[in-house]
Design a protein around this nucleic acid. Sequence first.
DNA 1: CCTCCGCTGTGTACAACGTATTGGTGAGAT
DNA 2: ATCTCACCAATACGTTGTACACAGCGGAGG
Lengths: 241, 241
Amino acid sequence: MATEKDNPGEPLWARLERPAPAPRQTLSPQRVATAAVKIADAEGLDAVTMRRLATELGVAPMAPYRYVSGKDDLLELMVNHVYDDLRLPGNLGWRETMRALALQTRKLLLRHVWLAQLPPTAMLSLTPNRMAIAEKALSALEGLGLDADAMMSVFRAVDAYVHGAMTYEIAVQNLMRQQGWSDGGKLRSELAPQMIWHMQTGRYPTFQHYLSTATRKDDARWQFETGLDYVLDGIVAGLDI
Amino acid sequence: MATEKDNPGEPLWARLERPAPAPRQTLSPQRVATAAVKIADAEGLDAVTMRRLATELGVAPMAPYRYVSGKDDLLELMVNHVYDDLRLPGNLGWRETMRALALQTRKLLLRHVWLAQLPPTAMLSLTPNRMAIAEKALSALEGLGLDADAMMSVFRAVDAYVHGAMTYEIAVQNLMRQQGWSDGGKLRSELAPQMIWHMQTGRYPTFQHYLSTATRKDDARWQFETGLDYVLDGIVAGLDI
DNA sequence: CCTCCGCTGTGTACAACGTATTGGTGAGAT
DNA sequence: ATCTCACCAATACGTTGTACACAGCGGAGG
């Protein structure tokens, strides 16, 4: 009866780090994670149900609980799993490293849009792969004469911008996909009954002016990089580096 | 089942046993919204279930559906309701307006921490009060010689940073509260078994250095404003305004 | 060889959720 | 006085996360 359940405080990762208990099992954290990610990628996060996951793995509904203590654990495992694909190039200056961090994160979130729908606890859980990325990014900020607080402020500013921007970008993308529109122009002109209605009230002249004269409304990448450059330029200006 | 009304000899007591006659028009979108917000503020977003809401309103479980078409609608209603408290001062320069937008949003999210846990669709839904804020913020960017795309890029950069930063800040705060620690120092030194474990691996020297030498780890406001200044400075630098 | 033990996956069960549906009741229009 | 319909009640269904007890089987000790 001395299972890991007796030590609830022990983090998931501690368990995973210990040598694999038995090479004979049909299930493994790896298999659980890949199956869950596959479901989420294909059908969205809502489709990731413990039962659905078990079905995907060809086991009984309760079987995955041997490897994850609950759904929260599962989400953390999924996050860690996909962040394994995010690799930061080394040997770059701090700015290029931060830029790469941002662009790579964007790519990852676009490949796994469900990452932007996670409950915040799972979103910023301290999984090994995420820790490794943070470590690498922080270390690129050493040797610039910054104190620890300043270094972290840089990392966090970039990270905050990226997540905020991607939450928005992905929400718009989801909205479009869910409505069956693939093209952004149609989105703006025909989509949101919401938006139409708001505009008809005539209460938002500046907004309306934007809608009718802007030319990069659909260039998500330009929008992302423009904002990112603001952040990076501001770091240069604020810290004189 | 025939009602008691069909039985003329029904004693008074029988009728009194039944739930109070209930005056008509007990519900309204306003009452629904305030009740839901009250629950979320007091017990977190998870406590906001349709049944709980109905109980709070003293009404049958399905009653609120007369005013909101489902739970998504309810969340939108809640968002709009609390954003009514966010007022942007007019007659300020663009930078002070953006700054006020950020600080006021932070205050709002700290007062209603569940705002940071909303599913993204509800988070950026186009509710009237949110539209009004966007309109006001955008109009503060007019007359600077910016085209529509640039104006929107400024607004979105600030907004993205704010939401990303607050997601993080609130997640940390939730973590602390949920563990019963009120003080940040304890948090870092004793909290997350996760963090402890990660540090014990010795794989994150830069991170560890931060933890041991930083002095503003608990100064959430400083962190927020520092990052915000990066963004604003970067806008100045990037757009030359 | 047999026997026991502990890890692994199974089966069943339950409470809580969102919400479809149907029914009764009273306020205002006719 | 009657009709009508907005309002709320009552009940029920399907799905979810997960607690709990049990079965099969591989390797250690005799």
